[in-house]
Simulated scan of single mutants.
Amino acid sequence: MSEFSSSFGGSDAARALHDDSIVIDGLVIAKWQRELFEDMRKGGLSAANCTVSVWEGFQATVNNIVKSNQLIAESSDLVCVARTAADIRAAKAAGKTGIIYGFQNANAYEDQIGYVDVFKQLGVGIVQMCYNTQNLVGTGCYERDGGLSGFGREMVAEMNRVGVMCDLSHVGSKTSEEVILESKVPVCYSHCAPAGLKDHPRNKSDAELRFIAEHGGFVGVTMFTPFLRAGVNATVDDYVEAIEYVMNLVGEDAIGIGTDFTQGHGQDFFEWLTHDKGYARRLTNFGKIVNPEGIRTIGEFPNLTEALLRRGMSEHQVRKIMGENWLRTLENVWGG
């Protein structure tokens, strides 16, 4: 049991619940290395949506997947690629973490609808429509939002057809609304926080959170401290505050975890993320990057289960939040 758990009165029952639960992190953009996989196992993750593309185009993204496949093969004692809900259940049963390949931008699709199916066959199951700025699909959250393009509508239809989940976390409000209405299957904010607790361009308003839930969508709540009310002083309990706030808006069946873990990366990585296309104008400046006390690393994930219980949530609710809701929603989109 971690030092944080001990200092906050952690219990064997909380750890037992965590170990027995399906635990899914809806967004991890940590540095790819075996140490990350070891920490995922320490944290008891059944699966994680791991970013393999942000600003990259088609070829660079394929190269990322090749490297990721090699690393996963070398760490097959710890992880496996998860393409289906059955793969996630099998990973849990085998004591491994299922790696879901995800994009944080549709750039890798370029202007080719057919690339959606190509990348699906390579294991890509979740794709964010835009990353902060304009692309061929629509508009990100740091620009004047022109909505979903005609090409974007075709893209949503193709993602629906082949079973790729539409993610709207970094997407503009109007584009998000139009994707939600256009999609025939659930879409998600894989990693967001409520603007009701902290006003930030990346956070979602109460109305936006209700809207996605009312249309069958899903919300993964992030713990990225620039988006939390307490900022860099946040603890795991402040993260739970955001989770509870969102749950009160969307209901206990439409909520899960999307930490946005950036574990292992240095300042150069954040510079790349926060400039348009990785090199152009600066979009934002996060300042100091530190995860909430008690869940600084993926290995401390059990502390989140304990903190949810400490907040007064039932074991049934905790199981839903920690992963059962994600699993059901992904199965709905992926088709098995």
Rank of each mutant, 00 (worst) to 15 (best):
I298N: 06
G216Y: 08
T305G: 08
A48E: 07
E271Q: 14
D19V: 14
C80G: 10
G312R: 03
T262D: 07
S176Y: 04
V79R: 00
L122K: 09
T225F: 00
E324W: 04
G287A: 01
A82F: 05
A16I: 15
G231K: 13
R281L: 13
L78R: 10
K120S: 08
L168V: 08
A254M: 06
G163S: 02
V28P: 00
A91S: 05
L308Q: 06
I321L: 12
V124K: 00
E208V: 12
V79M: 02
N291E: 14
K288L: 12
I212G: 02
H200N: 11
D111Y: 07
G163L: 01
D238E: 10
L327R: 09
V219Q: 02
K277C: 14
I113M: 10
A94T: 13
N69D: 12
D276Y: 11
A82W: 02
L36F: 06
F301I: 08
T61N: 06
T222L: 06
H265E: 03
E252L: 11
N285C: 10
R153P: 03
D238V: 10
G256K: 01
C141H: 08
E38D: 11
H265P: 01
A30I: 06
K42L: 12
K174G: 13
T274L: 15
L36G: 01
R41W: 13
V28G: 00
A13M: 09
V236W: 03
G294W: 03
N107V: 10
W32T: 15
V171W: 00
T297I: 08
A230W: 04
Y101M: 11
S21Y: 06
Y279I: 14
I295P: 00
A94V: 09
K31Q: 13
I88W: 08
V232G: 10
A30G: 12
R210V: 14
G98T: 06
T225Y: 00
V187F: 08
R282M: 15
Q33L: 09
G258N: 07
E315L: 12
H275P: 00
M247Y: 11
K67Q: 12
R144D: 15
